[in-house]
């Protein structure tokens, strides 16, 4: 019995260290993290089986926020409830947080350095390309048809040239989709009614 509280703490510590490791060693974020999380959580620690893990990813993608953080909250909850999810998500963000804090603290001293300026001058156009390419890949993967392509282009124009808030567009889309689903369900139930 005396070993019991020790075991409880160990579960939290394992959760924390597992996700801290995942957070600290994945460069590139989100989708790059999935195979690493799977290896740790499913193969090594056997906390969750493969089928459940696939479900967790699908649902994490449909929730707002960052994929890796959502997965950590999910897995943490599965293992140790609310406290587990809190510990796992803190583990997931602690290393990036500390590293960025350090960089932010020293960055202003380097920003006006002539050499650093030239380096960043070269990096900036690459940043634009590196954001643009995932957009194209995402469009290809989702096989956008003509109309959806027009909606995407319209969105792009509204945000970048008319200064419309992306949050507003998201909110309106969610509202529209909810309205559409209500209408769809209503039609279905009407169709299922016995005809007089």
């Amino acid at each position: 019995m005396t070993i019991f509280p020790y075991l409880c703490v160990m579960v939290y510590w394992n959760l924390f260290s597992c996700f801290a490791k995942i957070g600290a060693f994945t460069i590139g974020g989100g989708y790059a993290m999935i195979p690493i999380i799977e290896k740790e959580v499913v193969e090594k620690r056997k906390w969750i089986d493969t089928a459940d893990f696939t479900d967790i990813i699908a649902i994490s993608q449909s929730a707002p926020g960052l994929l890796a953080v959502n997965i950590s909250i999910f897995v943490g909850y599965r293992i140790k409830g609310i406290w587990g999810s809190l510990i796992a998500s803190i583990g997931c963000i602690i290393a990036p947080f500390l590293i960025m804090l350090l960089i932010a603290a020293v960055f202003t001293d380097f920003k006006d350095n002539e050499v650093v300026g030239r380096i960043f001058q070269g990096i900036r156009p690459v940043v634009v390309a590196v954001i643009l390419v995932p957009m194209i890949n995402l469009a290809k993967r989702n096989r956008l048809n003509f109309w959806k392509g027009c909606i995407a282009a319209g969105c792009l124009a509204l945000i970048s040239f008319a200064g419309v808030s992306p949050a507003l567009l998201i909110a309106l889309t969610l509202l529209g989709a909810t309205g559409y689903t209500t209408w769809q369900l209503k039609n279905q139930s009407n169709a299922n009614k016995p005809q007089p």
Binding site: S62, V128, I131, L132, P134, M135, L138, A139, N142, L144, K148, G149, I151, A152, A153, G154, C155, L156, L158, I159, S160, P166, L169, I170, T173, L174, G176, A177, T178, Y180, T181, Q184
Partner: peptide
């Protein structure tokens, strides 16, 4: 349904981030 509707919006948003 919501996720289907969001897809083109998200693609447009990422494009805007670059533009």
């Amino acid at each position: 349904n919501a996720l289907q509707w969001l897809k083109p919006i998200i693609i447009g948003m990422i494009g805007a981030a670059a533009v």
